[in-house]
Computed example of a mutant assay.
Amino acid sequence: MTDSAFEPLTVTYEHLRHSTDAAELSEFARRELPDRSDQAAFSRATALLEAVGGNPNTPVEDREFLARTMPFPNVLVKLARDPEASVRQAVAANTDDKNWLVGRLTKDPVPEVRDTALRNRKTSWKMRLEGAQNPEVDAATLDFLATLGTEIEEGAPAVLSSMVRRAVALNPNTTAATLDKLADDPSAEVRHAVAKRRRQ
């Protein structure tokens, strides 16, 4: 391939989007980005990464690398739809994500992706609450959600965080150990939910 710097962006983009050359795609995925001060080169590079990230011929480990390290929504949106769960999980863990994108991944059909998204600090309180209410969410993630507003994110909105902890207390997947912790919760609503759960 000729030096892509001399090709129109659309030509290079379409080439990379359809390329079957794994080595070429891998090289683009790992290429150092130009300095942000060179806005034209920087914008071009991030646009091309979108093409690379969205190409299923890009090696999985390179798509995972982009999913973990990229702060750019255009690239992450492509990777959030990746057929490989490991790539979507890497997006779900990326704390540069936009909250709407992490929120989408809290609904992923693969439990590991869903649970990773629920642990991302960019996840909205609405999505956290829905996760805490979901009977398919695993016990470890529920244990994490049970600490929001008390042990972690102590500056969190009291009403919202207590709603999440209350939902955890009522979730059938919540372990006895997590319930014991929530039995001493500062919120009366959470303590009442624990008592209700124990009566069931």
Rank of each mutant, 00 (worst) to 15 (best):
R121Q: 02
K98N: 11
R30H: 10
D96N: 12
L16W: 14
L179I: 06
S37R: 11
R63L: 09
A139H: 13
V110A: 11
T141A: 02
H15M: 01
L76T: 13
N94Y: 15
L142A: 14
L142N: 12
K196I: 01
V194Y: 11
F72Y: 09
L118A: 04
R88V: 05
A23M: 00
L129R: 08
T20D: 15
R121V: 02
L170N: 08
T95G: 10
A177N: 12
A51H: 03
E154G: 00
G131W: 08
E64C: 03
A29R: 01
T175M: 05
K181F: 09
P111I: 14
R63C: 09
A195W: 11
S161N: 09
L25M: 03
Y13H: 01
P73H: 15
E32C: 04
L170A: 08
T46K: 03
E130V: 01
D184P: 00
A67S: 12
L148W: 07
A51R: 01
K126S: 08
V164T: 05
T150D: 10
K122Y: 07
E24N: 02
A92R: 13
L179Q: 04
D38L: 00
L148D: 10
V137A: 05
D143G: 07
L118S: 08
R81V: 02
N55W: 11
F6W: 01
D82G: 01
V159R: 14
E112Y: 10
D35N: 07
E7D: 09
E153V: 04
T20S: 11
V87K: 11
V77P: 08
N134L: 03
V164R: 04
R36P: 00
S161F: 08
A132W: 03
R121T: 07
A140Y: 06
T58R: 10
G131F: 04
D180G: 06
E154K: 05
E112V: 09
P135F: 09
E14I: 07
A5G: 03
L101W: 10
A85C: 11
L101R: 14
D38K: 01
D115C: 03
L148S: 04
K196H: 12
A22D: 05
Q133E: 15
N74R: 09
N74K: 13
A176N: 04
R88T: 05
G155P: 02
A92N: 11
V194S: 11
R165M: 07
A93S: 10
R128G: 01
E27N: 13
T123L: 06
T123E: 07
S26K: 07
T175E: 02
T12M: 13
V52I: 06
A188N: 00
R30C: 03
M1W: 08
R121W: 03
T106S: 08
G155K: 07
F144D: 15
D115Y: 06
A188W: 02
G54L: 04
T46L: 01
V110R: 12
R31M: 09
F144A: 15
D82I: 01
